[in-house]
Nucleic acid binder design. Sequence first.
DNA 1: CGCACACTTGAACCCCCTCAACCCAAGTGG
DNA 2: CCACTTGGGTTGAGGGGGTTCAAGTGTGCG
Lengths: 222, 222
Amino acid sequence: MCNAIENRDLGRLAELATVVDIAPGRVFIEEGGAADSFFNVTAGTARLFKLLPDGRRQITGFAGSGHFLGLAMSTVYAFGAEAIDQVRVCRFARPKLLRLLDDFPAMEKRLLDVASGELIAAQEQMLLLGRKTARERLASFLVARGRTGVAREHTRILLILPMTRGDIADYLGLTIETVSRTFTRFRIEGLIALPSSSEVLLLDAPALQQLGDGLNWRRQLT
Amino acid sequence: MCNAIENRDLGRLAELATVVDIAPGRVFIEEGGAADSFFNVTAGTARLFKLLPDGRRQITGFAGSGHFLGLAMSTVYAFGAEAIDQVRVCRFARPKLLRLLDDFPAMEKRLLDVASGELIAAQEQMLLLGRKTARERLASFLVARGRTGVAREHTRILLILPMTRGDIADYLGLTIETVSRTFTRFRIEGLIALPSSSEVLLLDAPALQQLGDGLNWRRQLT
DNA sequence: CGCACACTTGAACCCCCTCAACCCAAGTGG
DNA sequence: CCACTTGGGTTGAGGGGGTTCAAGTGTGCG
């Protein structure tokens, strides 16, 4: 079912939506393709990305449950989207949705809120990409993941990362190797533990927070 | 007068607005400050930026005439704003504006469009900051400036840049020196001319376009 | 005239990238 | 059951694009 949109008051929305399941690795939004659909992720995680002609990739975000996709009031998609794991989305035909927006100003306000939030996140990411070091980038990433947090026990936070090192690298403007090396250094420094390659246990979230905020420039144990 | 908002139909808006003139160098939006106002730039150019504690700065955009500021539906500003040259804005008290939005759904739709456009631009900038080389970044910047273009004569385009090299550097995630050196290289390669330090004449816009899009990896005359 | 500020240019360095090898777990097929 | 493959991850050595540090060049304005 298509929850996560808003309160049940908008039951009529469900009539316009079709549930779609997307297999891992499947690209379901093509950058530059006609933007005829609007999506609401209800399960799984997708990577959103932009490409350069020679293959360089920038991941602009990860869309998890509750995330909206394609809200850009544009005729073509500005980015691609690809399922990381098994993804389920609610798909809306854009023309119907737009017509519906006129009847539900509350929905429009909600979308504006969402877009504003995304804009703020995008500006934060620009700061990260333009001015932070590799250590700071990864620390910011881990702390941000911890906030939309999963299992937290005391001061420790266990993250489960559905994306690969390559995804993280392309999200943070680094290479796979640098991400891997930085993970290792964090582990050596006692900031994190790595139970498995897709799990990260934050051992010192405050220190990581400071590091990500650009405060720490101590603790450079090389 | 406060034009540039929309069509004259919204004359009532003007009643809520106060025109404010801002001297060059003046910070009129403080990052983290209470977001009690909404601005519409009507003259001049402002830099929008985020700071790290140690002074590192990322400029997230330049706001020229017609640009909206503070549309983030947030309680605090996510970025600072500083006048580059003499700036004139329309200032709206946020509470009044929000109340007004309920009466004018068209206005809300307009804001959603604006936010969507900014989001697309932000994603493009993430690609630039995360994956492009210094040459590609500067080329992208110049071409983008050319599109919101000023005087264009034949195939040549004359840009007048109100911002300093430092601003450009902080916008592109580079240093002043790299920006300056890249300007010089472009000049030597015949891509641009530099009548003065604040003027750039694009001599080969298509080549710059390709370079900025990540196509050119020829023309590396070192 | 001279200070301030922006810009340019040069030389040395360094953080991160590139290239390459290796490890490991999960298939897959003989 | 094991050889082989495949994909993700880690680690090492070397190199390079951009930074850092420093000096020099305008240029507007008191």
